[in-house]
Design a protein around this nucleic acid. Structure first.
Length: 621
RNA sequence: UGGGGAUUGGUGUAACGGUAGCACAGCUGACUCUGGAUCAGCUAGUCAAGGUUCGAAUCCUUGAUCCCCAGCCA
């Protein structure tokens, strides 16, 4: 998008500074990667040797689908690893068995791959699960109890809440002075399943008077007798996010723990945990506690917010569960699965994330920028075709019945390598109803009675008559073509210059050859920039026109269009086209089997985004 | 009413004591077999008030506005 590379943002600057000072050391033979690998992974591993360590991660909880907001974090973290020759981990933060499901692990894995953050490629540090570290974390908790830094508390959730205090009044717990041996016995009993859910917790002993509530003796473990998607029935106590998260980064050797702004208040807690664990530990591992553990640097940035879009998991879940949309991948949703189904490319999403930069300012990005990024990319790569969404039949009176010509059609003017194909032309064609005005208004330069336009790649056409039904509605047009304009070029005079010009060019399809298709015209789900802001209920701002379905006639070349499983970074994607003058469209999986889809019908197409409309604002529909 | 953050054109983003720049949007015009694309130009900004300084978006003071925090969620 940008002509010049964007200047480095603040996190990139921090990383560059850390590289300069070797703040995180350098990659060694032990952690650089598979040096013997003959492919790209080996190349990256060998290049990594001796370079400053940069190791990032994307740590989603598998409790929902990834949305466009996550894309920013994925691009940031993967980009940092790639640009610095480092590594990027995909890690599931699966510390709450009650909320997490395999379906979400699968969708997230697929979506991260689709975006291009290849966590198993040359810059990949692999796929990880926080739940694999439960044993290590438990050991750290026991260590903290032994050090007098944690205790078992038997306050109920309600009592903890009641005793939390206020910003100026300290909290209390009658258990915080429980002797370490007692807490040790109790945590063991908790782990062994001897206590009921909610009966007790492990808490850090920090500061019940801190104005930062995160430091008011936060809970480390709660009892949950639940089946876990990864560890099954192995555990009945589960670590809280705050306790687990920083440790996960530490265990994986993450150098820069990038997260969103709301965790700024948690950073002192994460630092406290690691410092407390490191208390008494030594560099060489001598002494009672072993070697010091890694202490990552957390950096907070503002999450991506887009206008006319809702991104909280709670709201997305409601939209799906209460039927506002058809599912997580309904093309009206802001999930990555939905954007993919709608026809957005990973390149365009990455371009947006790169374009908006990264700061601590909570900005609201105009959704149009994502749409523009998509147009930008698709313009360069999408093959062109013609389709008529709202057909008006035109009979060409000076074209013989039954005669068919195959005219040359440029597949993509932006890409000469895409070549040409042919498109059939016959006596009756469909044109777009909007491209005709019986009484043309000022500035309208398409078809009107007596007016001449160019049929794209075909002939100049002059409207000679209008057919109407009893109610006066226009049912068809009569017209003639100029045989001397075959191919769409004006005849040239003796001076080699065109003898006449037409201002308008319209698209068309031959009635006898057109392929019928269901076209789903998508628009934004909400009519306001900040849904629900006015009334407090986003339901009030739902756009009833976010989906309109039309029966269209499309270019016969679309007979070859397909929905293709595992075709784009392993994800299922439909073929994408530009329908000239209309926008970008792609094959939906609801298409019939003949088109590679899972549905029973014929061809189903989604409108990804319209073409830009540069008519003066007053003239736009 | 405690603590933690933030504030530069319409929207984003740079400038790290030394000419407020870039992108997108908007508006003109050129070109065009897509009212697309492309090309050229224009419009438009440092939250406020003081202070330090030869010089302040940048440093200091005070204030304004917005966001986050009192889950056994993440």
């Amino acid at each position: 998008m940008s002509a010049e590379p964007r200047p480095p943002h603040f996190i990139e600057q921090i990383v560059a500074g850390d590289n300069e000072s070797r703040a995180w050391g350098v990659w060694s033979r032990a952690d650089a990667g598979p040096l013997d690998d003959p492919g790209a992974k080996g190349d990256a591993a060998r290049a990594r040797l001796g370079r400053p360590r940069v190791h990032t991660r994307f740590p989603p909880e598998p409790n929902g689908y990834l949305h466009i907001g996550h894309a920013k974090s994925i691009c940031l973290n993967f980009g940092l690893a790639r640009e610095n020759g480092g590594k990027f981990n995909l890690r599931f933060d699966d510390t709450n068995p009650a909320k997490e499901e395999q379906e979400f692990v699968d969708s997230i894995t697929r979506d991260v791959r689709w975006l291009g953050a290849d966590f198993e490629g040359p810059y990949g540090g692999g796929l990880h699960f926080a739940s694999n570290y439960f044993g290590t974390m438990y050991g750290y908790a026991v260590e903290l109890i032994k050090k007098g830094r944690a205790y078992v508390c038997e306050l109920s959730a309600e009592e903890v809440s009641k005793r939390r205090g206020t910003p100026t009044v300290p909290g209390t717990s009658p258990f915080r002075d429980r002797p370490a041996p007692d807490s040790l016995r109790l945590i063991d009993e908790m782990r062994r399943g001897l206590h009921a859910d909610g009966s007790m917790t492990v808490r850090a002993r920090i500061d019940l008077a801190s104005p930062n509530f995160n430091l008011r003796d936060p809970v480390l473990y709660r009892i949950l007798h639940e089946h876990h998607h990864n560890t099954g029935g192995e555990w009945c106590i589960y670590p809280m996010y705050d306790w687990a998260h920083g440790l996960e980064d530490s265990i994986e050797g993450i150098t820069h723990s990038n997260c969103t702004l709301e965790f700024e208040n948690h950073r002192p807690l994460y630092d406290w945990f690691i410092d407390a664990i490191n208390e008494g530990r030594t560099e060489d591992g001598s002494g009672p506690w072993g070697p010091r553990i890694h202490h990552p640097r957390q950096i907070e940035f503002a999450k991506l917010q887009l206008s006319s879009i809702l991104l909280s998991k709670r709201n997305l879940r409601r939209m799906v569960e209460e039927g506002f949309v058809a599912g997580w991948d309904d093309p009206r949703m802001p999930t990555l699965s939905a954007f993919r189904r709608r026809g957005f490319t990973p390149e365009s999403i990455r371009a947006l994330c790169d374009d908006v930069g990264c700061t601590k300012f909570e900005s609201l990005i105009d959704l149009a920028r994502l749409e523009n990024a998509c147009r930008d990319h698709l313009n360069k790569v999408a093959p062109r075709a013609m389709a008529v969404l709202n057909p008006l039949r035109v009979t060409i009176e000076n074209w013989p019945e039954g005669r068919v010509e195959h005219l040359n059609f440029v597949v993509n003017p932006e890409d000469p390598g895409a070549g040409t194909r042919t498109v059939p032309f016959s006596r009756t064609i469909y044109i777009e109803r909007d491209d005709f005005m019986e009484h043309p208004e000022k500035g309208f330069f398409r078809l009107a009675p007596g007016a001449e336009v160019r049929l794209r790649w075909a002939y100049f056409l002059t409207c000679t008559g209008v057919e109407k039904d009893a109610s006066g509605a226009i049912t068809g047009l009569r017209a003639t073509i100029d045989p001397a304009t075959r191919g769409g070029d004006a005849p040239v005079g003796p001076d080699g210059k065109p003898t006449r010009k037409v201002k308008g060019t319209i698209h068309w399809v031959s009635c006898d050859h057109a392929l019928p298709a269901e076209v789903r015209l998508y628009d934004r789900l909400f009519t306001t920039e900040e849904p629900g802001k006015a009334t407090g209920k986003w339901e009030d701002d739902i756009n009833p026109l976010a989906l309109q379905v039309v029966r269209a006639f499309v270019d016969p070349a679309l007979a070859g269009a397909r929905y293709r499983p595992a075709s784009e970074n392993g994800a299922d994607v439909g073929d994408r086209y530009q329908f000239e003058r209309l926008g970008y469209f792609c094959v939906d999986p609801d298409s019939g089997a003949g088109f590679g889809g899972r549905g029973t019908a014929g061809l189903v197409l989604n409108r990804t985004v319209t073409l830009k409309d540069s008519r003066p604002k007053a003239q736009r529909p």
